[in-house]
Amino acid sequence: MPSTLIDKNDIMVQITGLKKKFGDLQVLDNIDLNICRGEVVAILGPSGSGKSTLLRCMNRLEEINAGSIVIAGETLVENNEKGEASYTSPEKARKILSHMGMVFQQFNLFPHMSVIDNLMAAPKIVKGQSDSEIRPIAEELLKKVGLYDKREVFPSRLSGGQQQRVAIARALAMRPDILLFDEPTSALDPELTIEVLKTIRQLADEKMTMAVVTHEMSFARDVASRVVFMADSHIVEENTSQEFFRNPREERTRNFLKNMLY
């Protein structure tokens, strides 16, 4: 879908002129990126190009130095008169960020809670939902990722692939509109990767809006609607995934794909 045809209300994440530095190191330079409702955006690029940082800026795990981020129509951060990033009030930011969930490379499950408690903790503690309210939803989500049988087990008893699927279910339990994934399968063996990618593909079929940093080219090609290719703190190329893999425009992209595919 060309972006000109998309209703403004359907832009879930709108990033404009984003700059991010770590000390003197410019990690993101003038990033513009929109993510629309129902889109799956794959973020590709060589190591150190700033993919994780871009994702982490979206949900404020990192704070940006300049630019603006608008999530579901609400401004999380924008430039002040001096051209420096200025965040909205903490309460508003909390509300805005509740639209977003995140899945990490290292799963980051809560090891002291059973699988089902991992899913129920945030709805209970953050949203104040009652046990009877959230338990059926949590059980449903566990069935969806195929781990209902493991609901009373502690995460340390699960395989990496199972842990990652619990992490996805945990994020979904908060009913986010956008899910961010930072290399969700990089810590997994190939056979476990498949089951996690299957879960993400299922979410794509349900039109969940997602941004996925990944090194899985076949996943990006088959599941993502759009690909963003980053190198050296910039977005080098951006296209529908079909076009991106069939006709990469930039030299850097072609080199990257050559190295990845062969």
């Binding site: 909390r94 977003m100 980051n108 499950l109 903790a121 945990r170």
Partner: peptide, 17 residues
């Protein structure tokens, strides 16, 4: 590990929670 704080934060927990 820092990941525990980050996971909590992305789920909406406050620092105290």
């Amino acid at each position: 590990p820092r990941g525990q704080y980050e996971a909590s934060k992305t789920l909406g927990f406050t620092y105290v929670q």
